[in-house]
Each structure stands twice: as C-alpha cells, then as structure tokens.
Amino acid sequence: MELHILLPIAGRSVFLFTPFGLGGLVGLLSGMFGVGGGFLMTPLLMMVGIPPTVAAATDSCQIAAAAASGSYAHARMGNVDYKLGGLMLVGGVVGGAIGVQIIRVLRGMGNADFVIMVTYVVVLSLIGGYMFRESLGALRGTRRTSVRTQRRSRTGAFLGALPLVVSFPKSGIRHSVFVPIFLCMLVGILAAIMGVGGGFIMIPAMVYLLRMPMHVAVGTDLFQILFTSTGVTFMQAAVNHTVDVVLAIALALGSAVGAQVGARIARRLRGEQLRIILACIVLLVAVKMAYGLVATPTLLLSPAGGH
C-alpha cells in the first residue's frame, strides 16, 4: 500500500517519499555548490501539483534548512568567511529590496513574466557557458592562462583603486568593502527579479570576480543564504500563510541529508571539477527553460501566482 501524506496548506495529498526525494536531490546540489536550489525546487514542486504560491514559499523554508545544515558542515570544515559573508548579506538585502520594487514596476507594465523568463535564459546561459568554458580549460591544463592573467590584472587594477580596502584572510583576498556589498546588491536585484535565492549567480561571481577559493565561496554563500531564507520564510508564513509546514519538514529532512552528502562529495572534488558540474546543471536548466519558451504548452491556463 502506498503511504501518502496530506499537505494541509497546499491542500494536496502526495506520496510520502516524493518530497523527501525532491529535498534530497536539491539538498545535494546545495551542499556541493552552495546554491540554495530555489531555481530547481519551485518548478519541481509545481510539477507534483503543489500550487505555485505554496511551492515558492515552502521552498524558502527548505532552503533555510539546507543552508543551516550545509553552513554548519562548511563551518566545521573552516569554509565560511564570516567577515565577507556579513558584507555580502548587507548588499544582498539592499539589492533584494531594489529588485522587489523593479519587479513591481514590471508587473504594472504587464508581461513581466515574459521578461523574467527571458532574463532567466540569458543569465543562466551566460553564466553556465562561461563557467563551462573556463573549467573545461582548467581541467585540460589551462590553455587560456595568458588571457585570464591579463583579465585578472585589469580587474585587479580596477578593484584595487576603490577605497576602504580590507583583508579577508579566510578567503585569501583583499578588496574594498564596497566590492562585496555592490556585487551582492547586483546579484540581489537579479535574484529578486528572477524570484530565486541567487546562489547560482553568486557562486560564479564570488569565484570569478572576487577570486575566492571555490570551497570558501560555497560555505560563505550558504552562511548568507541562511539569513535571507529565514527572513523570507517567516514573512511568507506569517503574512501570506503560504508555507506548508508538513511539506517543509519532509523537504527539509531530505534536503538536510542531501546537503551533508553534497558537502562531503564537494570536499573530495577539485574546484574546477565542481565548477564544470555546476556549469552543466545551470546550462541544462537554461535549455529546459528555453524549450519551455518555444514549445507549445499543453494548457494555455495555469493557476495564478508563480513565475
């Protein structure tokens, strides 16, 4: 006999292991790459029949659980740069607030969802394509070293000219305090427009622009995701009543296990190996979304509320 559970806020009954499995899959990615998994979990939940508003809100709850578990694991491994993480958090919160206002204006103009979808495909393709090319080059023996060195020096000269330079010993880098704040503000704006946590934009930005080691980037990103997702979860539950706590527990259990497994896999892989796997996942999501834009849908109506 199949064991089902009722999700009281979603108003759906699902096979017990479906949310555990989905949580485990997304948690694995979270632990390996530091991405919150929002760009995957919400569509996956909608695919199993969860209403869009409940899917998005409950997703933030499981991201908080995965981030708590993952950042704890990374903190024990010494992979969290708290100083940098604090500055990133400030930038992310400000950027998120700006992004929410931008999306409100876009919705007022109509057709915002189309803009969001196209933004998704373009941003994911650019990031995934760049990461794939770079990490493939690194795996093959850095045939593009000279170009990268030149780029690094130009970027370094620009970043070095900014005031209030401080050292971040854990990451082994020196930057103006404005660099992580401004960078996270931009990512926060994009993340709010796209309706996701932004980890899959943030990690490449930390690795390629801030030049942080991949493992520290992952740990530090999880640390700041923990705070943002906790805030979002509270607001969604208390104001919108859209967090399904039963679904959240099932997702969180699966996701916390997945995140721990992911963190251990990540420790055994080299940075460029992690980057090329993440690049492939990001490109797959981009292709899937691009296909969704051109393929004729089976239904021309969908319940209102999600992206």
Partner: peptide
C-alpha cells in the same frame, strides 16, 4: 516554520 527549518537543518 522558521524553527522547523533551522532545527531540522
């Protein structure tokens, strides 16, 4: 909701 997420994690 927040307590559930953090404590499970």
């Amino acid at each position: 909701s927040v307590s559930v997420a953090l404590s499970v994690g």
